[in-house]
């Protein structure tokens, strides 16, 4: 049974500019996306910054009203039944904002427990249980302003779980935390899913989605460009190979020519220090190395290598080409 149903969901913004002669334009952040998340599933929304991930989550947790389409969470319409949706979902975002710095971790949790109507007699045990889960027991009476980024993030998780939400929305929860903290966070998320919580996770870390998610939707430019299990997405790029050419000059000029070469499926340019790397996806059996080098003309070339494609290549290709699934 689907607990999140998103149907042709759209959100546009009007952005104004100018002081004397004001002009405005409409920006479409989410362009008619549709997907469903089943109960107990960990569903990932993957995409680069500005792809529409956070906007989508904010519509689902009722912080933004959609400009088109429909969405239901736990059978409740996110526009008409906003309060009921809020009662049953949790929301955690990444970064070190979203907490009262001058209060202790414990006071932060007490306040949000009141906001979510956690009965008074249940508050103490629930807070204790969560502090233990996020490994903040013993530090709860310290002010949040003295917490490290990882501790803040763990406090966020505890806050989001106070009212035992059936669906948890995690918006880039591991952003800015160290690898050990991120691993612990992933373990916490995995244990929540084992306990029956449905999780919608947004991230732009491919490995994180790969490790955690049952299914993934890749979003770029406000549209879903691919969806499936991590294995299915990997299979989508398992054929062919990847040619990487290190270039000390502008590689962008050659992109259109390289893209038109027979056997080339996609081309992206990545900045790596002083060099640029032309990453060329090539069909199985096609040999394009000489042809690619010929298009670069007099631009100095460094390392040239061919390798197997990774899931990250699939992600980069999907968000760069932006072809809807």
């Amino acid at each position: 049974m689907a607990v999140i149903e998103v149907d042709d969901l759209t959100r546009s913004y009007r952005a104004a500019s100018g002081i004397w002669r004001r002009s405005s334009k409409v920006i479409e952040a989410v362009k008619g996306i549709s997907f469903e998340v089943e109960r107990g599933e960990l569903f990932g929304l993957l995409g680069p910054n500005g792809a529409g991930k956070t906007t989508t989550i904010k519509m689902l947790i009722t912080l933004l009203l959609p400009t088109g389409g429909h969405a239901r969470v736990l059978g409740q319409d996110v526009v008409k039944d906003a309060r009921e949706v809020r009662r049953r979902v949790g929301y955690v975002f990444g970064g070190d904002r979203g907490l009262y710095e001058r209060l202790s971790g414990l006071d932060n949790l007490k306040y949000f427990a009141e906001l979510y109507g956690v009965p008074r007699r249940d508050q103490g045990p629930r807070i204790g249980e969560l502090l233990e889960l996020v490994k903040l027991d013993g530090r709860e009476r310290e002010r949040v302003e003295g917490y490290s980024r990882g501790m803040r993030q763990r406090l966020h998780i505890a806050r989001g779980l106070l009212h035992k939400p059936e669906v948890l929305f995690l918006d880039e929860p591991s952003i800015g935390i160290d690898p050990v903290g991120a691993r612990e966070l992933r373990q916490t998320v995995a244990s929540l899913v084992e306990g029956g919580t449905t999780v919608l996770l947004t991230t732009h870390y491919m490995f994180e989605a790969d490790e955690l998610c049952d299914r993934i939707a890749v979003i770029a430019g406000g549209e879903i460009v691919a969806r499936g299990t991590p294995a299915e997405l990997k299979r989508g790029v398992s054929g062919g190979s990847v040619l990487e050419v290190e270039v000390f000059g502008s590689a962008e000029d050659s992109m259109a020519t390289v893209r038109s070469l027979p056997g080339v499926t996609s081309v992206v340019v990545e900045d790596r220090g002083q060099a640029q790397v032309l990453v060329v996806r090539v069909d199985t059996g096609a040999e394009v190395t000489q042809a690619v080098l010929a298009t670069l003309g007099g631009v100095p070339v460094g390392r040239v290598a061919t390798r197997e494609p990774t899931l990250e290549d699939a992600y980069v290709e999907l968000v760069e080409t932006g072809v809807p699934a």
Partner: peptide, 18 residues
């Protein structure tokens, strides 16, 4: 600025009471 305004609105409690 603290990032808590969205959390207050996202709570099921009537905003005025906060």
């Amino acid at each position: 600025r603290l990032g808590t305004l969205e959390l207050l609105v996202a709570a099921p409690t009537r905003f005025a009471l906060l």
